[in-house]
Simulated assay, not measured.
Amino acid sequence: MTRPLLICDCDEVLLHMVRHFGTWMRERHDMHFAYETGSFVAITAADGSPVEPAAAFAMLDEFFPAEMERQTLVPAAAEALAAIARQADIVILTNLGDHCRDHRITQLAAHGINHRVETNRGGKGDPVARLVAEYGPSVTVFVDDLAVHHESVAKHAPSVHRLHLVAEPAMAHNVPPAPFAHARIDDWEGARDWIVQRFADNLPADTEGMPA
């Protein structure tokens, strides 16, 4: 009998990122990142002028992997994954370049999280579909903080249950529920229970009520 499968994002799901990225940008570039707005490009220079989105994304390549040690564990995340791993396979699907994969594995292991890590660029629907085909799970749950990835998974792997989780409290209240997710839960105790219940139900995701 095949096991269930959990496919889980990392940044702002398992590890806090934006608050530490903001601190680093202030220290390194004298810029202010208003991450609590929920916008990744809400960045201003020291003179108050807005920073172009391209420059903001370029700074990510400075932060990863050199500054990854700044990141901290989301409360109850490691404990939830340990409990889920007793009955399911787990893959961490993270949108980082391939050159960051070993760094992410080491980083997660330092927090007691030792599961397969896959890096990705762009939408996560295709890699989720490939993982489902590879594992042949009885049921699959996908967890991510970004609505765009829930939409991508809904398109390419509609039978997968999709949980929207934004772990940064200062940002979560400004981020609306992802339209293509089946549920929104921002803490790992609640998320663990929701995931385990999907496994227990052993049914594919219900596509009714999802946006066209």
Rank of each mutant, 00 (worst) to 15 (best):
M25G: 09
L5Q: 05
H149W: 08
P176Q: 00
I92G: 02
H32E: 14
L6H: 09
S152P: 07
L73C: 05
T37A: 03
V117Q: 02
R101V: 03
T2H: 13
I113V: 14
E189L: 13
L163Q: 04
M210I: 12
V196A: 15
V141W: 09
I7V: 15
F33V: 10
S159R: 10
A170K: 05
G125I: 03
N174P: 00
E62C: 07
V74T: 10
E12I: 02
H182T: 06
L93M: 03
G112M: 06
F57T: 03
H149F: 13
V139S: 12
V74H: 01
V143D: 02
H20R: 04
A76C: 04
M1Y: 12
H156Q: 14
A133P: 00
E67D: 14
D126A: 15
E36N: 08
R121A: 15
P137S: 07
F40C: 01
T106P: 00
A154S: 11
V153P: 01
G48P: 03
H16P: 01
A42R: 04
V51F: 04
E134G: 03
K124H: 04
A129D: 09
I113C: 05
A78I: 03
P211I: 02
M25D: 04
G22I: 02
H161D: 05
S49Q: 13
L203P: 00
D9P: 01
H32L: 14
H29A: 04
A172V: 06
C10E: 07
S152Q: 09
H32R: 14
M59E: 14
R162I: 09
Q71F: 11
D11F: 14
R198T: 09
G123H: 01
K155N: 12
H29N: 03
P204D: 12
R116Q: 11
P211W: 00
V143E: 05
V128E: 04
R26I: 04
V18Y: 14
E168M: 01
D102N: 10
D30A: 14
M210N: 01
T44Q: 09
G209F: 05
L5H: 08
P50T: 01
V74N: 02
S49K: 08
I113P: 02
D201H: 13
S152M: 00
R198P: 10
M68R: 06
T207G: 13
V74F: 08
L93W: 11
D47V: 07
D102G: 02
D186G: 04
G22K: 03
T23Q: 13
W194I: 02
M31I: 06
T23P: 00
V148D: 12
M59C: 11
F40M: 13
T72Y: 00
E69G: 15
D144H: 06
D193Y: 07
V141Y: 12
N114D: 15
T106Y: 09
